[in-house]
Design a protein around this nucleic acid. Structure first.
Lengths: 147, 147
DNA sequence: ATAAAACCTCGAGTCCACTTGAGGTCAAGC
DNA sequence: GCTTGACCTCAAGTGGACTCGAGGTTTTAT
């Protein structure tokens, strides 16, 4: 219970993610831990930031894999500096912007439709998916793909 | 090949979703079809609107189940009127608004962080998940839950 | 008339993001 | 020193949203 290192339970409590999820993130290489004498995980405090970043990115719709790739570009050897986090935040911000733009344009199209009682095949982009929506094939969930 | 009814392949081509996905949506009760003499699906044209609505809703992050519930409130007996669709669109629009608001507020918080090189535990809401983010427990993907 | 393309069903498989459980170890309080 | 709660690993299970494949029928084009 050193002041500066956190157990998995403490991290779970503070970050709001389940212990099993922390194990899972570690297995996926999203976070790291050192082990104490008894093979228990001990986390540096900055893991909380990492986790916060992970959850933020997930909300924007990024799959864990991409999040991992972005995180992997943080310096491994030293504790990330403010500048490191800042760069990452800025990148996240761009992603967020893009996502918001997508949704806003979707909303604008929907507005057209509400007026005309729509999703009508003739008049509305949303109702004519081959034009506007589904052209990109695939499902949703795919990240730079949607809209 | 009647003028007014569409085969599953035609619907797939026009809507941009795979035939298997149409089967799947049908199994989930999101769309319906009648069968012709040879047991093949025949769709009324408004299925294209339904599918468009489904994809739109998915992009906002709604799980299929909720989409199905919303669609279930459309009149079953008659082809939905413009007013029916309009009501639905309006509801979707509210959902979209909410989602956009979430993301915008997330972005604003991120902006704070970029300035301060942040996600710092003291200063930043994002970095202090127990306060702002993860309080609601659960994972992402949950719809009215996030943020 | 026949070959090819499109359909059908139903069960299994895939990917993602986790969660659960079994079987066992470690640490903290009394 | 012993019990209890927190940890450990590893395999398997879950839920959402599909996709694939086998085996067989129907439609369409020539």
């Amino acid at each position: 219970m050193s002041m500066s290192e956190l157990s998995v339970g403490q991290v779970a409590a503070r970050s709001g993610v389940a212990v099993s999820t922390l194990h899972f993130y570690e297995a996926r290489g999203l976070i790291a831990s050192r082990r104490n004498g008894g093979n228990q995980r001990r986390y540096a405090r900055d893991v909380l930031r990492r986790i916060a970043v992970i959850r933020v990115a997930q909300r924007v719709g990024m799959p864990l894999q991409e999040i991992g790739q972005a995180l992997a570009r943080l310096p491994d050897a030293r504790t990330p500096t403010r500048a490191d986090w800042s760069r990452l935040s800025a990148a996240w911000r761009r992603a967020l912007d893009a996502r918001i733009e997508q949704l806003v344009s979707l909303r604008d199209q929907l507005d057209d439709c509400i007026g005309c009682g729509c999703l009508s095949l003739q008049r509305c982009k949303l109702g004519n998916p081959a034009d506007a929506l589904a052209v990109q094939g695939e499902g949703p969930r795919r990240w730079p793909a949607a809209l």
